[in-house]
Write a protein that binds this DNA or RNA. Sequence first.
DNA 1: GATGTATAGTTCGAAATCGTACAAAGTGGG
DNA 2: CCCACTTTGTACGATTTCGAACTATACATC
Lengths: 149, 149
Amino acid sequence: MPEHNPAVFFEVFNEIGIIEQLSRAILEARLPDGLIAPHFTVLNHLCRVEDGRTPVDMARAFQVPKTSMTHTLKGLEAHGLVELRPNPEDGRSKRVWLTQAGRDLRSQTISALGTEFARLAADFDTDRLLAIRPVLTDLRIMMDAARDP
Amino acid sequence: MPEHNPAVFFEVFNEIGIIEQLSRAILEARLPDGLIAPHFTVLNHLCRVEDGRTPVDMARAFQVPKTSMTHTLKGLEAHGLVELRPNPEDGRSKRVWLTQAGRDLRSQTISALGTEFARLAADFDTDRLLAIRPVLTDLRIMMDAARDP
DNA sequence: GATGTATAGTTCGAAATCGTACAAAGTGGG
DNA sequence: CCCACTTTGTACGATTTCGAACTATACATC
């Protein structure tokens, strides 16, 4: 029978919190001055998913208040990495478009992280990462759904 | 041969980042007003590891600047959850001691989270969490060590 | 013991995060 | 059309995070 011990969740979340902090430090060390993790997360999202999203869409996607998204986008715009244009289909909202500089920075950063992670991977069995990824994904989906109302 | 694809790291860190955000939201929703995740993390650390640590020790343990630790401890002290006393062995430093209220709050919060997580666990196979925990721990230890110099 | 260096903690200012309140634009019922 | 209600984005203030500079204490080398 499966043991539903809450402590297991607690310990997993504890480790996840520390790993998040360490990986964020690695990422931010590779970003140009003035840019931090949230900026890159937005760039990455726009590249992977789709250009032309509205700020509110992205705020919801990242579970952050829309005021935080406004702030992050303002920073990206100031660095010429995204453009905000009015939404022709809705006078209230805007659409966020990547600039070429934005795409380039995202690519360069991922490359830099690739070599950094390759150094780490030398000391770590990547198969174990492959194994936990689907569990993390399911956990994330489950928590996301449990938070809907 | 193990495939050292950097993308695997990237994806794992991505999921971890989202899960961290969601779990933090769950935690902070259960904390009394004015207390946030870092406060609880410190309380938990002092309970689990040991009382009487110095602020710098804890700043290093959590990978945060010591100024942030000063701020967090000030908040905990204002709520009567910890006490800071001078370190008799070192005139520069202080030692952080839990109050009974601090221990109680930690226990109560963990209990509350227990029922919350039990609800989640109903929809999730805890064996999978048990399986990924050692991998996360090893990953955390590896990253921690890789960051030493 | 004197002096230079390192460490612990705080103060201060800048940037980030986020809740509240607001203006502008959309939506739906009468 | 008019009204209430919702949604989008922003301005503002409070709190958090964090780097730089500072004080006080410890240590080490002479």
